[in-house]
Design a protein around this nucleic acid. Sequence first.
RNA 1: UGCCCGAUGGUGUAAUGGUAGCACAGCAGACUCUGAAUCUGCUUGUCUAGGUUCGAGUCCUAGUCGGGCAACCA
Length: 553
Amino acid sequence: MSEPVNNEPAGKASHFIRDVVMADVAAGKQNGQVVTRFPPEPNGYLHIGHAKAVCLDFGIALEFGGRCHLRMDDTNPAKESMEYVEAIQADIRWLGFDWGEHFFYAADYFERMYEFAEALILKGCAYVCDLSSEAFKEYRGVPTRPGKESPFRNRDPQESLDLFRRMRAGEFPDGSRCLRAKIDMASPNLHLRDPVLYRILREPHYRTGSDWCLYPMYDFAHPLEDAFEGVTHSLCTLEFEVHRPLYDWVVSQLAPPIVPRQFEFARLNLAYTVMSKRKLLQLVQEKQVSGWDDPRMPTLCGMRRRGYPPEAIREFCDRIGITKYESLTDLALLEHCVRDALNRTALRRMAVLRPVKVIIDNLEQDLDVQAVNNPEDETAGSRTLTLTRELWIEQDDFMLEPPPKYFRLTPGKSVRIRYAGFLTCERVVQDDATGAVKEIHCTWNPPEDKLKVKGTIHWVSATRGVPATVRLYDRLFTVPEPDGDKEVDFKSHLNPESAIEVQAMVEPSLAEAQPEQAFQFERVGYFCADRYDHTAGAPVFNRTATLKDLWAS
RNA sequence: UGCCCGAUGGUGUAAUGGUAGCACAGCAGACUCUGAAUCUGCUUGUCUAGGUUCGAGUCCUAGUCGGGCAACCA
């Protein structure tokens, strides 16, 4: 494990997994060693749910001076690829974690696993079964009824061994035979009813090529991977809870020096999104989104492109806690963490998303003013802005007939313009046909005049400002649980207004923004220069989050 | 219906037999050259019924509700 990657406070809330690890360390179990692992299958991109596991796995190791392995759990060649391996590594690094030298592929253990399987056969603890998959299901029984023993269950170990070797040699067609553990066909736990350990599958593997036509199943492979690596605490999600007896069975058969133990916690459910890899893949393939890194996706690369800082995601994962209760986390908590991080770090700039023109009739010459870059950070300094005779202001910041408590610009009234004095609306030019406001003519007062106004609005010089494409992102779905109803296609809840593009006018310095640089457009929200599309000549910004707006409600 | 797991304000969580606390959200106010941020205050909670105990959110029993398990996926 390398240096801690963040300096977040050490005082974390307790949870049952931390308690277990703490107790184990205190009791001197496993020589006081703490070794965890994050074991993704490289068949999709990492999302915020995985981030919860990553933060737990790496966080626990960091906290107890142990190490966390990154391991590709690649035992099913049909869906896995190197593209995903690389994306997973990049996302975890971006999140802020480092596995050092401890990067592994389950596929690299295939030979060792195979050898152990042979040993199991010789011990009489596993056998080759010739049942078809239909017959297999028939014999297994159902949860409420015990299963029946396979007619091949008591086959001579030597015969099983011979068949197993011929399975490896490719003598039998896919699915014709499998290797099974000999445990208990009457167990109320289906996973203990002689589970399949190996299947015949002629599928090239992205790492081992066509070396194998035999692949181990998760329940056999995973405990072995953990044991081979000396993992002490194997943390996974709740659906594997019923697999634990099998996990322990495999480990006890191997009897490794370090006995890994599995602990399960609830996966993250986030409101207004879907977390299943299958559904996310579907959104990508059906082009409902621009890709895995679409800023509306709950993927880490999507959130990165949206402008979510990694420390905000880590903070979020810290705050949601670890339990065995399957909850639905409010999106507002994630957004709070994002705003909190950005408020402290993002440079303030002015940008007008939906411009309307103001003409200052009494401004004789351009005027330079100083603007603070970040009121939360003195070291961020200030910049010079130029007030010019023609300005852009937000359409929302002017109303011909304002409702009560409207603090912005209205006919005959005054408003402060950020850092540059006051505007008083004298007259309005409207479009003859539509009545739309075309020009707002104002008189200007310097800051020293201290006009009594309630509001301050932002502005961009019409002659100095530059045009920019701004993408306004919102939640991808319109309901808290898009996949909550099995009868209804989750895609029917897609939010048609989740991505709106506008042509904005922004202050000149924004053209020089670096890709991925974060800003607060004052009074509007947090934005970042798009990682891929932004250039000085054609600036592109993504809305990360709006500012909280009490007035809007 | 067999087995396993779970249930604390609107949401997420803490309290490890001894005063139910924190955060988010919401509401009200203060401050403010961002209707932001910040600060102050407030509303709201132990699934039900029994039992053990001086004392139960916590332990036990039963029930209710929710989730998981019947891929040769992970």
